[in-house]
Design a protein around this nucleic acid. Sequence first.
DNA 1: CTCCTCGATGAAAACCTTTTGAGCCGCTGG
DNA 2: CCAGCGGCTCAAAAGGTTTTCATCGAGGAG
Lengths: 341, 341
Amino acid sequence: MHVSNHARPTLEDVAARAGVSRATASRVLNASPRVSPEALEAVNAAVLALGYQPNRAARALVTRRTGAVAVVFSEPEPKIFDDPHFARLIRAGARALADVDVQMVLMLVHSPDDQARAHRFLAGGHVDGALVFAPHRNDELVSIVKKLPLPVVYAGKPWGSLRGMHLVDNDNEGGAVLATEHLKSLGRKKIVHVSGPLDELSAIDRLNGFRTALGLDDKAVARVVEDGGFTREGGRKAMSALLAKVPGLDAVFVASDLMAAGALETLHEAGRRVPEDVAVVGFDDHVAIAEHTSPPLTSVRQDSDEQVKHMVEHLMKLLRDETVKSKKQMLPTVLVRRESA
Amino acid sequence: MHVSNHARPTLEDVAARAGVSRATASRVLNASPRVSPEALEAVNAAVLALGYQPNRAARALVTRRTGAVAVVFSEPEPKIFDDPHFARLIRAGARALADVDVQMVLMLVHSPDDQARAHRFLAGGHVDGALVFAPHRNDELVSIVKKLPLPVVYAGKPWGSLRGMHLVDNDNEGGAVLATEHLKSLGRKKIVHVSGPLDELSAIDRLNGFRTALGLDDKAVARVVEDGGFTREGGRKAMSALLAKVPGLDAVFVASDLMAAGALETLHEAGRRVPEDVAVVGFDDHVAIAEHTSPPLTSVRQDSDEQVKHMVEHLMKLLRDETVKSKKQMLPTVLVRRESA
DNA sequence: CTCCTCGATGAAAACCTTTTGAGCCGCTGG
DNA sequence: CCAGCGGCTCAAAAGGTTTTCATCGAGGAG
């Protein structure tokens, strides 16, 4: 037996040392008001002296709370995880949850098998709640999760009805407007757009922002928009296609930095100077990318850290059963100017 | 109260329905041999009928096992997580652990504060074991973890004494030899190397492989090696430096695909054709990168999925307290030929 | 002085599972 | 026929915490 045979101290031990009962010690730990200052101090001292740490299992057993939440990424294309955006979200989640002392159980859902597993797990009462990242249209997982009696906060708008759901979204549309207006303000006349895959709502919202900023109808949209699939390679290809379709283009709004990096490569190869000939604006403001393209990329910042932080905060409120004021939060986006536009 | 007021069934309920005692039901669940076929069937039927799921907390309380393991990434430079390699490892970990039905608690350790938190958590008995990724020299976290009475499996060799440690490493040195020999076999005469940061053992091992394959002494190494810091930008710069130092170079072995992508850009800008003028071999065989560089990158494959799978397997053995045969495992690397060399 | 009230405390129940020690039953060997 | 044994089963204890309910003591009001 590896695991700490040095008998970890129990609450009983703490109580004994502090000269109080287990009940009182427990009250101190849970910051109950009904405890005398002396008792409080004695218990705290004992805790410190013994290096006491509450036994999570015992606590979970009686409180019917696990102290863990699931962080679920539903994504049929595993390779999308190569997007640094994903790493950033995980990192933010790990940090935000650690800060409130709850365990993060990461679940990556790719296949129907994974969905079934996730269903079992979430229904099995192994977590108190969940943070769900499911950007795709008609994602089966969302329907599954919706039926569960489990507090859930979504990242962005999941597809389908939003009734009774809690979510924290970025202002994708607003950011797209910002980007497009900026290009207009530079005097650009032929502005095109590399969109994300249109089965993701964030991509749609960005496209809509672009479209309203320019007042385009459906036909016009078809002429000046290409889907880049949120990948670098896709950005490259979409840019080529647009150069062919709209030879005189002088500006492009790209719906993600990763795609923008690809688009810049294409423009470079095509001999177009950025920003002189073509102004480029990305989306995400993913620093590791945007600061290292040539030229550095002007981009719309969406603060993922902030988004995740809000999601966690919101979920904790749900768990405390406070009646939560707002169910949908929209986080602002801002334009970060660098050299590409 | 959101959380399942539909009173989840307990083992008692299952036992009652199956017409046996709690003890027998428990034995069935834990696959004890001492149970009659009839009882077994009855219990299984009851479990299915009631949709019973064991209560993790209660089980943890009595078995003194949490059913969770920590996956710890220690990395002073948070931005390194932009490396897709990191995402891949996390993904592999999540999958491998889910397969054996244990929860993965992800811990990202950047600062001394994080270290303290990790220490508290790991010492607090919240997990049964840990998988530790700590590639850097003199990482404080390793010393901390070493002292804990906790089964741990390391990814790669952590710095310092390896006594009594369990680890699963990739054959970095062997892979580097493979890459270098390949370049030699192509008839290349002036082969240089872009290394990773030399406070990481994997980078050192790769450098050593390069060095032994070419039989270089210290001075020679200084002449033909540049540190690219395992970043794309670093790869770019290192390549420039090498072009200046060794104008006649005709091959380069780059210690990571991300750096190789940067190096290719530099070579391209310098007007060197790949592979005609300069042959390039990367390391990692990170498909999302290697297949999309121009030209596609020849690279040394290290199978991270496999590595993590082995780590999990090994840790489970440790937990079962089986005396484990080998303490250090070395995973082979292979050369994947594409067009860059 | 007595009766109440109120705040702090303690004893004990409850949470759900695993595991131990004992019991039961039917059989075999003497 | 009996002792003993082997195979299953059960009752009960154990695990560490929170929480309810009762108790105790002090202080205030009458």
